[in-house]
């Protein structure tokens, strides 16, 4: 159900997420200190390659990590197996990636 490849993908995506989660929270706390408005925040993120890469990579890591984690729960608690389980995993990963990357486009594209 969880072979070496999926295990590695989940652990590596977790490793990638650690600095992103910390960075994301730190920036959120920092950004609201002076009462920044939405327009001011977007003014800084839109057109920024750095923020595009930051949140773009974050979204990829989340999609991989969450899809594999939910696969385990669906198998152990829901009894799903085989193609249904694989389909669910890929479906969840694709949905998270789609929703996440739309948000990244909205925030980081000029």
């Amino acid at each position: 159900m969880l072979d070496l490849r999926l295990y590695m993908a989940q652990r590596l995506s977790a490793l990638v997420m650690v600095p992103f989660v910390l960075g994301h929270i730190a920036v959120m706390i920092y950004a609201i200190q002076g009462g920044l408005s939405t327009a001011e925040i977007l003014g800084r993120t839109q057109g920024s390659l750095l923020w595009f890469l930051f949140y773009g990579t974050f979204v990829i890591a989340v999609s991989v990590h969450a899809a594999i984690g939910l696969r385990v729960i669906a198998h152990e608690w829901g009894g799903l197996r085989g193609r249904v389980l694989d389909g669910l995993m890929w479906g969840i990963g694709a949905c998270l990636f789609y929703v996440g990357i739309l948000a990244v486009f909205a925030v980081a594209l000029p």
Binding site: M1, L2, D3, L4, L6, Y7, V72
Partner: peptide, 9 residues
Amino acid sequence: VSGKGGCHN
């Protein structure tokens, strides 16, 4: 021990 039912579960 690396297959579907292996140690990684």
